[in-house]
């Protein structure tokens, strides 16, 4: 995109347009980010270096003491494990469900209604979604009737009710289901648009050549929408790294469901230094995506 040379301008004109936005972004994003990095090297009082919290005879990473906590504290290890689990299972899960539905909905006449339904959770807050699903997972452990849908079904089938949210063997998966429910619509929308953008002739040609629908999907569609899948995946990775509200409202991070962002939130008052180190950890994890996005953007610009 080049500016028409004919539109001459004063030297300071661009800055008149840019300044408000740049100042706000500097004050609210850039400066705090670096300040957070700085705070992560201080202890909980934000007045002494982080090494002040070291206890003799205990391991200590000096000025990086808060990072020792962020990387080795048992709770943090659980949080890191869970975030990894979310990334490994939920990102593909959401993309696959979204893609599946995009492909299937494409073939039915009531496509727009069906897509609206899948997409609807995007309109409500994560907090609201958390409540909806707390109710679905609710377990009555005494003599009363099950009022949570899933446990009512289990009991009706003659099984024991399950504590979906407190049983460490399954609660992380129960939370991920909520995540898929929330985000599948997002993936579906973008992938569906990509599918519709595919040139009809190419698909037709493949079908004429005798390819089955299955083959058309794997051999033609999938490769062609791969760039979009990558975009959706990176976005989901960012979303999942920051996953917070769902865990906060459904389990509060108890029972081994802790995640990085919730840990950061819990410590924000009681131990700012550690909390900030966790925040830094979070941004470090997003930097690869950031670099990737910037590169992709540069490539797209160059191709323009």
């Amino acid at each position: 995109m080049t500016v028409p040379t004919i539109m001459r301008q004063g030297r300071w004109t661009p800055w008149f347009y840019l300044l408000p936005a740049l100042v706000i972004m500097f004050v609210f994003i850039v400066y705090p980010t670096f300040n957070t990095v700085y705070l992560s090297f201080l202890d909980k009082t934000s007045t002494r270096p982080a090494s002040a919290a070291c206890v003799p005879d205990e391991p200590c990473w000096g000025i990086f003491e808060n990072y020792r906590y962020a990387l080795t504290n048992p709770e943090m290890v659980i949080a890191l494990r869970n975030n990894a689990l979310w990334l490994l299972l939920m990102v593909p899960g959401t993309v696959i469900v979204g893609l599946l539905f995009a492909v299937l909905a494409d073939k039915v006449p009531y496509e727009s209604v069906a897509k609206s339904i899948i997409f609807m959770p995007m309109a409500i807050s994560f907090i609201g979604a958390g409540i909806i699903w707390r109710f679905v997972y609710y377990i009555e452990t005494g003599g009363g009737e099950q009022i949570g849908l899933l446990n009512a079904i289990l009991v009706a089938l003659g099984r024991e009710p399950v504590a979906f949210l407190s049983n460490p063997a399954i609660n992380n998966f129960a939370l991920m289901v909520v995540g898929v429910w929330l985000w599948a619509g997002f993936c579906m929308t973008i992938l569906s648009a990509a599918l519709k953008g595919l040139p009809a002739e190419v698909l037709e040609a493949a079908r004429v050549d005798g390819a089955s629908e299955w083959q058309v999907f794997w051999k033609v569609m999938l490769p062609m929408i791969m760039p979009t899948i990558v975009v959706v995946t990176t976005t989901m990775v960012i979303n999942i790294l920051k996953i917070f509200d769902i865990v906060f409202v459904m389990t509060g991070g108890n029972y081994g469901t802790e995640v990085i962002a919730n840990r950061m939130f819990k410590l924000i008052v009681t131990d700012t230094g550690r909390s900030m180190a966790i925040a830094v950890l979070l941004i470090v994890l997003t930097i690869p995506i950031m670099v990737f996005n910037v590169r992709r953007f540069r490539r797209e610009e160059a191709a323009r």
């Binding site: 850039v30 007045t47 924000i268």
Partner: peptide, 25 residues
């Protein structure tokens, strides 16, 4: 560059004893 600026800003900022508004659990 911005790291340097941020550190300077942070260093110059008066150390306030006031804590951030607690998101009280």
């Amino acid at each position: 560059a911005s790291a340097v600026i941020a550190l300077l800003v942070a260093a110059c900022a008066p150390a306030t004893p006031t804590q951030a508004p607690p998101p009280k659990t």
